[in-house]
Nucleic acid binder design. Structure first.
Length: 217
DNA sequence: ACGACCTTCCTATTTATTCG
DNA sequence: CGAATAAATAGGAAGGTCGT
């Protein structure tokens, strides 16, 4: 899992985390069992407190809504562990973004549910994409192991060729390609890094890619 | 080489609809 | 009637295209 996730987990699970202070079990991803909502619970005030960094507010919110949010997530992902994970992430997000909540755009409770629901939906969407990608990979892979080995060899051979082709590019353009497709930088980031205009970077990448295609055959 | 404009994708939010 | 869910919409970022 990503470094971000590690940091997030530390936020909720750390000794000083609101969730733990709230008496949430050491397995901090397990929401409490369904409880009757406090009719007088002030969600907007609670979010405002969260925005000010008051951990007790997040604790109260967790007590109040975690079970229902788990239900929402569970309906979407249909997996208790995943749903607990999503609720956990949702509270991290609520804590981090409480200041961005705007009461004029809807109820605080609606906002909290919306955050949770979207996390679950995004997870499902990403999952579907990954699943279809792996399905594709599976279908693309031939059963015959000899062919697999041959393909692997061919892949390595092409990989070597790609380095040769990269060598033929001007250093600045090669850097663009490497930053874009190896380092994962955006075009804007590459432009800033190289001190070149954005349009130039885009053009370099485009032309370099076609040069590479041509070189690779 | 450059920059304006366009398209696509992703995420967040709101609104409409369904259901208990 | 309120909660849950689905669908629609808005906004922003990234990348590509095309005229200068």
């Amino acid at each position: 899992m990503s470094r971000l996730r590690t940091v997030q987990t530390r936020l909720i699970c750390s000794d000083t985390s609101p969730a733990e202070q709230a008496g949430v079990s050491k397995d901090c991803r397990r929401p409490k069992l369904l409880s009757v909502p406090e009719p007088s619970f002030d969600y907007e005030a609670c979010l405002a407190d969260c925005a000010r960094g008051e951990q007790q507010a997040l604790h109260n919110l967790y007590d109040q809504e975690s079970a229902r949010l788990l239900g929402v997530a569970l309906r979407i992902v249909r997996d208790t562990a995943l749903a607990e994970d999503i609720v956990h992430d949702a509270f991290i997000k609520i804590w981090a973004r409480a200041a961005s909540y705007d009461a004029s755009r809807g109820s605080a409770r609606g906002w909290i549910f919306s955050v949770t629901r979207h996390l679950a939906l995004n997870f499902m969407r990403d999952n579907a994409r990954n699943a279809s990608a792996s399905e594709f990979d599976e279908n693309a892979l031939p059963d015959d192991s000899a062919t697999v080995i041959a393909d692997s060899f061919e892949y390595r051979e092409h990989s070597g060729r790609i380095y040769n082709c990269l060598d033929l590019l001007e250093p600045a353009r090669r850097n663009c390609i490497l930053h874009a497709y190896v380092d994962g930088y955006s075009h804007a980031q590459i432009a800033a890094k190289l001190g070149a205009p954005l349009g130039t970077v885009k053009a370099w990448i485009k032309r370099s890619l076609s040069a590479l295609r041509e070189c690779m055959g």
